[in-house]
């Protein structure tokens, strides 16, 4: 029993646990909109793009959140703009922009070294790298995201389901989209140190997909995805201590295990719902 409770005696771990739970819940909440818009790839791309900002801000000694945040927001808006011009080939364009940004970040860090969070922590997440500042910033972003979703619930839902009709029904779709991109980039930024660049996309997608398999109602999907994300964050961080592997890895593996369990219980029948989250077929 002592072995199980042992990690809770370390303040750094308790702090990491709180951060991971908040990060999981936050990604679960935002992930619903991202997956339903068929933008799962944007989470992956954006986290890589933000890594370039992380490296650049680290080298020129600008606050990590400010430098990477501005870089990330600019990337998010650019990606959102590109995804609307489908004929260009949005996936390819995102791939080029974001992986180039990631490669630039790797090159910069190799040349100059990091003055902020470590390279490995940025890639895979680390409980050791989490500061109280990180915790409060994440709490602030989580509250901000919650308020944005609460106050703009119907607009976000309408603009996600049917942007054209929403536009002519009084929803300012461009504003709603920009707001969502802002929240997404802030969320990735704030969760980067605990989950890591390479794995943050999974925390955006997995809880939403599992929630979709469990419900047909949007409001329930939002709540379920947030809870699943938070639970995966908590359990994943706890396992990370015992297994001594990066926290992002165990958080994502916990999510994958939940996904597998739900698929097993539902016999895979409901996978079809999640398999075509953004398809437009009658």
């Amino acid at each position: 029993m002592d072995v199980l409770l042992d990690p809770f005696t370390y303040p750094f771990f308790v702090k990491g646990l709180i951060v991971a739970t908040m990060a999981g819940g936050l990604c679960g909440l935002i992930g619903v909109f991202i997956t339903l818009r068929g933008m799962s790839y944007i989470g992956h791309g954006l986290s890589h793009a933000i890594f370039g900002g992380f490296a650049a801000s680290s080298i020129i000694a600008v606050n990590y959140y400010l430098g990477a945040g501005l870089w990330g927001l600019a990337s998010a808006l650019a990606i959102n703009s590109v995804t609307k011009r489908r004929r260009i080939g949005a996936d390819a364009a995102i791939g080029v922009i974001t992986t180039a940004s990631f490669a630039l970040g790797v090159a910069l860090l190799k040349f100059y070294g990091s003055k902020g969070p470590s390279f490995d922590a940025a890639l895979f997440g680390s409980v050791l790298g989490i500061t109280y500042t990180d915790m409060w910033i994440l709490a602030g972003v989580a509250v901000f995201a919650g308020i944005v979703v609460f106050l703009n619930y119907r607009s976000l839902l309408f603009a996600t389901f049917d942007p054209d009709v929403a536009d002519v029904s009084g929803v300012r779709v461009a504003r709603v989209d920009a707001l969502l991109m802002l929240v997404l980039s802030l969320s990735i930024l704030a969760t980067l140190t605990v989950i890591g660049v390479t794995l943050v996309a999974a925390t955006l997608v997995v809880p939403a997909v599992v929630a979709r398999m469990l419900t047909n109602r949007f409001s329930r999907m939002l709540v379920l995805s947030t809870i699943i994300g938070a639970v995966c964050g908590f359990v994943g961080m706890y396992l990370s201590y015992h297994l001594d592997v990066p926290s992002g890895t165990t958080i994502v593996l916990t999510g994958a295990a939940v996904f597998g369990a739900v698929m097993l219980v539902t016999g895979g029948r409901r996978l079809q719902r999640a398999g075509h989250l953004d398809t437009h077929t009658a």
């Binding site: 339903l36 106050l151 703009n152 619930y153 119907r154 607009s155 839902l157 309408f158 996600t160 389901f161 049917d162 929403a166 029904s169 009084g170 979709r212 419900t215 047909n216 109602r217 949007f218 409001s219 999907m221 079809q272 719902r273 075509h276 989250l277 953004d278 398809t279 437009h280 077929t281 009658a282």
Partner: peptide, 21 residues
């Protein structure tokens, strides 16, 4: 044909979209 029928909304939720929050 243009509607995403996998989107997780009920009939009531869909109709409610038209009412400004």
């Amino acid at each position: 044909e243009t509607v995403n029928w996998n989107f997780p909304v009920t009939v009531a939720e869909c109709v409610l979209m038209a009412r400004k929050q």
